[in-house]
Amino acid sequence: MTTHYLVLSALLFAIGGVGVLVRRNAIVVFMCVELMLNACNLAFVTFARQNGSLDGQVIAFFVMIVAAAEVVIGLAIIVTIFRTRRSASVDDASLLKH
């Protein structure tokens, strides 16, 4: 039973990881990051259920809160970049290299 949830969690995480690596649109990359976070949340909740303890669920809440904060800041940055550079591609925002 637990295995199914964990496989689903791993799949979601892998999809998110690949998305982060291959997509250029900042919004999509961002959503993929969220996907990876939620894959983790699923794993936490699964283990909490299996072990009968609340620790995993508590951590899942923390992750959600961090994710929410991240969305607020991340979207703000993306919007600002888009306004100034007329592009949402992450490859265009490489001014800090070297």
């Binding site: 982060v20 291959v22 250029r24 990359v29 992450v90 490859d91 490489s94 001014l95 290299k97 070297h98």
Partner: peptide
């Protein structure tokens, strides 16, 4: 320092 390409994806 050329390793620092500036591409987020390569950092990831």
């Amino acid at each position: 320092r050329r390793i620092q390409t500036g591409f987020v994806r390569s950092y990831a």
